[in-house]
Design a binder for these strands. Structure first.
Lengths: 203, 203
DNA sequence: TCACTTTTTGACCAATTGGTAAAGACACGA
DNA sequence: TCGTGTCTTTACCAATTGGTCAAAAAGTGA
């Protein structure tokens, strides 16, 4: 028997861990870390509280697990931006992917937003280690496109910030958007954001 | 003695209520409603917990008081947008005022963001009663400018959303911005956002 | 079927939290 | 200086919360 090998999780383990993480995503994303309780998570998952603690060592581990999973999903659309592609098309595609994420994964977006809003107490290392290198790399790519005269000269950092904020807005501030703009604002958002970024990036 | 008249607050009352609200703004904006404790607020205010409860009937009343004050501050920059002014100038001034707010009142911005993020449980009535009418009115103003050929045709609602999100981003996601872009990003933001909105609005 | 492991539960606990009661300290006008 | 109303504190509670533990139940392979 190999010593360090953590024997592969049983079917029950896989199912219940998934159940718990999905419930926890619901609860954490709507109440924040401290606002969420293990009892809420347990009820949402359809398990007892001690049973939750059989699969995770504590509240914090659940949260951290979610945050780790989230970081991958989060970086993915930016990773896909191809330095060899057509600049304008690559950037507008990136905007579209981010907007799709806001529509399809609003809980994840809110979990992320809540963590950053509170000073990223559990995610700061991730920001430095994972996000920053990727961010710097892609900023350099965009700067290259600008230097090649393919895009209008703008600060790549603030460009990316504005892509993040405008797209995530539709998930994070959903309640406000609903009140002010009725349902299904995403379609209008796509048209508007396309025009917005196309105009500022056109040479 | 006039019956319904709540005698004007003493100097001590004024000072301590201010002290409490300022401390509560700190605590609520960094931990959210449930994450904040009366003990934290008491300590930050330099008062004992029962003393806090001498001035406010409970945790919720403190929060609601902050939210009410906030709504005024929040709407103000939009109120100032003048239908009779020069369209492009009015809108860019609005962007600048919102960016100034993000720089000068980050705690207020985060308090607001946290409330909306969690579904606005305590502010939904305000959104309907105060924000929506103003929002609709200003959307009509912008639409008027567009119809008059003074601005490029964009959806006024999404235009305003994008102004809110891009400016508030520098307060709400401050930690992330700091990690990725170093200190004092506001100056660069002003230049970038000016170019962004000028280009999309130019006819 | 039986022994053994994995999973689930009920009972419980210490710490924290929002909030209360009542006595004490303080300010201030008469 | 004194008395009255304002302000502050000490001591305390009940409810909630994250977490433990041992025992019961449910799987699982031979």
């Amino acid at each position: 028997m190999p010593e360090g090998a953590p024997k592969k999780p049983s079917r029950i383990q896989q199912r219940n861990r998934t159940l718990i993480l999905d419930a926890a995503l619901d609860v954490f994303s709507t109440h924040g870390y401290r606002g969420a309780t293990l009892d809420q998570i347990a009820e949402a998952a359809g398990l007892s509280k001690p049973n939750i603690l059989y699969y995770f060592s504590g509240k914090e581990e659940i949260h951290v697990t979610l945050l780790n999973q989230l970081m991958e999903t989060w970086l993915d659309p930016l990773v896909e931006m191809d330095a060899n592609g057509e600049p304008m098309e690559e950037l507008l595609d990136y905007v579209h992917r981010k907007l799709d994420m806001a529509r399809d994964l609003p809980r994840e977006s809110r979990l992320f937003a809540g963590e950053i809003l509170q000073g990223a107490p559990r995610m700061h290392p991730h920001l430095e280690a994972d996000l920053k290198p990727l961010f710097d790399e892609k900023c350099a790519v965009i700067q290259g496109w600008i230097d090649a005269g393919k895009l209008a000269p703008v600060d790549p950092r603030h460009l990316i910030f504005s892509i993040w904020s405008t797209t995530q807005h539709y998930a994070d501030f959903d309640v406000q958007v609903q009140v002010l703009s009725g349902q299904d604002p995403i379609q209008g958002a796509r048209t508007y954001l396309d025009a917005l970024f196309r105009s500022v990036l056109s040479v």
